[in-house]
Structure formats: structure tokens, C-alpha cells
């Protein structure tokens, strides 16, 4: 891992970032309807004043340059829909929630996925394999909008153990993170199983066992390190996917996360929020892939970036 490589990756990011800014900026502007269209007829005078207030009366290229300039100062502008609130503020409030939900979900996904996958890999083609793997197929097939309300019904209403919606105490966080994590745990268990079975048949594992190492040491020190590589490479997209794709879970459990803004802003034509959330997601995907590449090199001595 050279510094050179990191710098190269970062340098590539800048033109891509600018491209994303430009694309999103113009695409959302060209969609029919605007942020101030409403069911009530807005008189031309009020419309003019509204447009002036948000500098939307200027030609589009001027607005674009203005946006770039603000962006360079880390100012994402005012929200059109949520008057008197800035995009920085909205993201500042909701992004930590999304991160927390994402991290908790990922924790569930890893714990459940790796345990189930390892169990299956150690006793392939037995019930220890079939049962967890059947559940993982179920987990892949069932969408969150089925699992979520199901879990809420079971643990929130039938057994009154956990709250059905909201986001304040730790109890609130169990069901949503489990809902979101389950789908990913299904993938992870299959990746783990595949990776481990392949590794366990390799010569160096046999050598390790022949040396008289305990089974635990063989598994933890030798098999996992290589066997979990597929899982690690999946982590980047998974993390980005969990954080950006939490919309359904956020709506079901009424969680004040970023996903709701991401979708609602497009529906509301809240241009600045569309831009802000899209750019954030772009950054997120980029950064998570970047870290996975680094982690990958560290785990697998054969992988080297120059």
C-alpha cells in the first residue's frame, strides 16, 4: 500500500465528483414541476417573489456557478421545502441517525451471517448446513417491507417487548437494525460458507492441522483470514447500501434518518436537498470502497496496490 496509490485514488475522485454534481444539478432541474408548485394556485407575483428569494430567477448557468461556489465553501444552501432550514442542518441531524442504524444493522448482519456461514462450512451437507442456508435464502427473498412490519407485529404488539416505531432508547433500535441487517446477513452467510469451504480444502490448512495446531487456532488464525475475504470485499458496497438503502426501514419504523430526505426531496423537487443527499451518498460509496481496498490488501498478502 503506497501513499502514491491513495493520492491517485483521491485525484480520480475530484473529476468524478464534479461530474456527479453537474449531472444531478441539471437532471433534477429538467424534471417537470418545481419546488413551489402546489395544489393552490400561487399568484404570479408571489411566485416571482419566491423564485427571487431562492435566487431561482437567475439564468440556470448562473445558479449552477452559484451552487458550485457555495459547495466549495461547504454550504449546501437552504432547503426549498423546509423553509428556514439549511441542507447542512437537515443532513447534520439525520446523517448520524443513518450511520448509527447502518452500523447496528451491519453488526447484526456480520454476527448472524458469519456464525451461520461458519456453522454451515464446518459441517457441509448436514442439517447444520441446510437449516441456516435455507433461512438465508428466505432472508434474501423476503423484502424489508415484509420483515419489518412482521417483526414489529410479533415483538411490538403480540409480545409487548419492544417499541413498534421511533428512535430514542436502545429498545427502539433493535427491530429496525435487525430488519435491515437480516437481508445482508443472508448474503454474508452464503459468502462465508463458500469462502471457508474453499479455504478448508487448501494445503496450508492441512499443514496447519498436521503441525498439531488446535482446531480453534486453525479456524481463527488461518481459515478465517482467507475465508472471509469475499465478505470483506462485500462490506464496502454493503455499508453504502445499508446506509443509502434504509429508506423502507426508516419509513416503517419512523426513523429520522437521511433516507427519507433522499426520496422525499426528489418528490418535492427540493433541489438543494436532492443535491446534498446525492453528493453525500456518492462520497459514502467512494469512501467505503476505498477502505475496503485497503483492508483487502492487509488481509490478503497476495494483493498489492501500486
Amino acid at each position: 500500500m503506497s501513499l502514491n496509490y491513495i493520492l491517485k485514488r483521491l485525484a480520480v475522485m475530484i473529476p468524478v465528483f464534479l461530474m456527479v454534481v453537474t449531472l444531478v444539478f441539471f437532471m433534477i432541474r429538467f424534471a417537470p414541476g418545481g419546488p413551489f408548485d402546489s395544489e393552490k394556485a400561487v399568484s404570479p407575483e408571489i411566485m416571482r417573489n419566491l423564485l427571487a428569494k431562492y435566487h431561482m430567477d437567475a439564468p440556470l448557468w448562473k445558479q449552477y456557478l452559484r451552487y458550485l461556489n457555495d459547495l466549495a465553501h461547504f454550504d449546501l444552501g437552504p432547503s426549498f421545502k423546509y423553509a428556514n432550514r439549511t441542507v447542512n442542518e437537515l443532513i447534520g441531524e439525520s446523517f448520524p441517525v443513518s450511520i448509527e442504524l447502518g452500523m447496528l444493522s451491519l453488526a447484526w448482519a456480520l454476527v448472524i451471517g458469519i456464525l451461520a456461514g461458519a456453522l454451515a462450512a464446518l459441517r457441509p451437507n448436514t442439517l447444520w448446513d441446510y437449516i441456516p442456508m435455507s433461512f438465508s435464502i428466505l432472508g434474501i427473498c423476503l423484502p424489508t417491507f415484509v420483515i419489518g412490519p412482521g417483526l414489529a407485529l410479533a415483538f411490538g404488539l403480540w409480545y409487548d417487548w419492544l417499541p413498534v416505531a421511533g428512535w430514542s432508547s436502545w429498545q427502539h433500535k433493535v427491530l429496525p437494525s435487525l430488519t435491515l441487517g437480516l437481508a445482508y446477513s443472508a448474503f454474508i452467510s452464503r459468502l462465508t460458507r463458500g469462502g471457508l469451504i474453499e479455504i478448508l480444502n487448501q494445503d496450508f490448512i492441512r499443514t496447519a492441522r498436521a503441525k498439531g495446531l488446535s482446531e480453534t487456532t486453525v479456524m481463527v488464525k488461518h481459515a478465517f483470514r482467507g475465508g472471509l475475504l469475499p465478505v470483506v470485499s462485500y462490506l464496502g458496497p454493503a455499508l453504502a447500501g445499508i446506509i443509502t438503502g434504509a429508506l423502507v426501514t426508516e419509513t416503517i419504523f419512523n426513523i429520522p434518518g437521511l433516507g427519507r430526505f433522499f426520496i422525499q426531496s426528489a418528490v418535492n423537487r427540493d433541489y438543494t436537498v436532492v443535491m446534498g443527499t446525492s453528493l453525500l451518498y456518492f462520497g459514502l460509496i467512494f469512501v467505503s470502497n476505498f477502505f475496503v481496498d485497503i483492508l483487502y490488501a492487509w488481509l490478503d498478502p497476495r494483493v498489492r496496490y501500486d
Binding site: 411490538g156 413498534v164 421511533g166 416503517i252
Partner: peptide, 9 residues
């Protein structure tokens, strides 16, 4: 649906 569940709980 969420609202109705919150009411029930």
C-alpha cells in the same frame, strides 16, 4: 400502518 401500530401499542 406504522401509526396504527403505535396506537395499538
Amino acid at each position: 400502518d406504522t401509526e396504527e401500530k403505535m396506537f395499538r401499542s
